[in-house]
Design a protein around this nucleic acid. Sequence first.
DNA 1: GACTGTTGTTACCGCGAGTAACACATGGTT
DNA 2: AACCATGTGTTACTCGCGGTAACAACAGTC
Lengths: 224, 224
Amino acid sequence: METARSSERQRTAAERRRRELLEAADRVVLRDGPQASMNAIAAEAGITKPILYRHFGDKGGLYRALAKRHTDALLSALRAALDAPAERRARVESTLDTYLAAIEARPQVYRFLMHPADGAADTADASPTAEQGFDVGRHSAPLLRRLGEELGQVIVERVDLGPDSEQMARIWGHGIVGMMHAAGDWWLADRPCSRERLVSSLADLLWGRLAEAGDRDVKGGPGF
Amino acid sequence: METARSSERQRTAAERRRRELLEAADRVVLRDGPQASMNAIAAEAGITKPILYRHFGDKGGLYRALAKRHTDALLSALRAALDAPAERRARVESTLDTYLAAIEARPQVYRFLMHPADGAADTADASPTAEQGFDVGRHSAPLLRRLGEELGQVIVERVDLGPDSEQMARIWGHGIVGMMHAAGDWWLADRPCSRERLVSSLADLLWGRLAEAGDRDVKGGPGF
DNA sequence: GACTGTTGTTACCGCGAGTAACACATGGTT
DNA sequence: AACCATGTGTTACTCGCGGTAACAACAGTC
């Protein structure tokens, strides 16, 4: 074998192929939602199933690869907003807005990333005769986790919490990401308000307005 | 038909049957995770598939019924903590703790409720020839949504926000629930800290400590 | 005893994930 | 030239699962 040249050519060719396949898969997922079948994806790419499986192993592999692309893109956009040289509140609002704008612009992609099929099987994996029947592989967790860890990092780097700040920053990172995600998910379903309003309300929440607000008169009077 | 007596007897019998089936399904889901098959559930209940389908229509129906039971139980526990006659911070902490204790105590149930298979297909439903191939039906969304709405209600009832408080309360409800959920999910994976610490950190976050904390010295000096 | 409805069964369909086995090209080795 | 190694592509299958049709058995009613 002549090794170098040709094998390299082939490798890059394979990578290009892989990208093409991913783009085809992207189109199908965008059209059919997360339950897009391997047959459909293969058809869209103009080839047949086994090729997909040679490239990605199984459906989970394809979906992971697909998710990684979008996740990376989203993450870099968020990082930019988060690392901007501005007041903290402005940074927070701009990050929230970036996220919401992203999911608003491409809800199909969002749904694919966040609400895919699951197939967890934590400890149940160890069951006999059950090593091959399972498929997809979590994506929603990875994305949310990555976001949470990332945000935790930023917090621990830029915000001065007391002792044990590392741990608290991670907690907050995941908590804030979850807040953003859940509120975004709810908001996306039937936009009950403008994006600006949602952003500023969430920022208000993070800014402690829940603690500051007074009690409302409850029927039963002040004795309650 | 003799109507009254016997039909009523049959209805209650059917209901008892239904409960038995749900309990069997519960056991299987607890053992096999969310991807438990209808065959397995039927076997566990000591009967065969068609009976399951007669009772629940399809897999989504069964899972919905199953989810409803757990959801209702969790919700009532949370409501109790949330409606207790205590300071707001204490109520918030106790609610968070209730939730976390619940998911800690029965992680399998939690995983079933929160990370089930999905099969969304929003607008794609309208595709031809695709009215029968789809199955499960979202659960995670319903639970989170219910929690969020519920919390929003409580906030609007008990906290005095400014004008337009209704909308902000709903936003906050969903946001806080999402925070709790994401932090809990992350925490559950590999308990990085005690439950108390998690609870108090999240409460701190809601109490505006993020806004109060000072900037940390960033390399590049104060000019940044 | 014939009629009706419920409870249960077996045996099947359709579909999607994943695989085995075979066919064709290409380019280096002898 | 013939040879074979490797990557690309196909067809045609297995297997498991959701879901259903068709039939069997057994109440209680008229």
